[in-house]
Amino acid sequence: MTHATGLKYLKNGCLPLMWCPGCGHGITLGNMLRAFEELDFTNENTVVVTGIGCWGKADDYLVTNALHTTHGRALAFATGVKAYNPKLNVVVLMGDGDGVTIGGNHFIHAARRNIDLTAIIVNNYNYGMTGGQVSATTPSDRRTSTTVYGNPERELDVCALAEAAGANYVARGTVYHGWDLKNLIKEGLSKKGFSLVEVVSPCPTHFGRNNNMKVAVKMLNWLKEKGVTKEKYAQLTDSQKDGYFIIGKLVDRDAPDYNTRYEEIRARAMGS
């Protein structure tokens, strides 16, 4: 059996990618494209919608349909695409700053609507493109270029937010656990309704430099150690839990998605 490469979705001549050495975005992109291939997505029936940020540049490398939008608003653009043409596979790529900091409101409501989009939020713990400033997911007390003495704010749990807002599918992966990540993305893409896959991928250039993970190998080792399954996490005592996070599938439900509900309501309107 041959493994999917995802190369057919990749623009000719774009390698090497412009992301920094040690950045995990290439790993996420590769796994996403392999998931596309395993699901037989075509360039014609796929629309990749991106926001602003390092990960939001991913569409530059793709030959699928794409819409590169404004900062924080990718989900809202994607909502219009999907609501008008439910047949399309609409995948939304955002970072933590884009997806849940400036774009937090759209994130909540896309999940609440349960519209059949797959959001792949790469969480690098800071605003990488603008120089490593603090974001809503930067852990408390960590140093960034705008929290040089430590972050006074608390971090946001992106997956918990998606679950509370009503997403049908929520999962967290890391760029260390590549194989699992591909499967989580694949599951998210296959799931009807709103899917979130959070990919933990600390920015080595900025966040890493300020927080003792400047070398990418250190970051990968950190992900390997701190990302644990739900079962493992449950076995930890409260004091041990600090710094660890759950990876894998977190939510899997089958509430009706927006388009299905809209079709029902529209049929009612057309009948009346």
Partner: peptide, 13 residues
């Protein structure tokens, strides 16, 4: 913000 964004998305669809 979302309204005009969704409008643009639908237009491209």
């Amino acid at each position: 913000i979302a309204s005009i964004a969704a409008m643009v998305g639908a237009s491209l669809a």
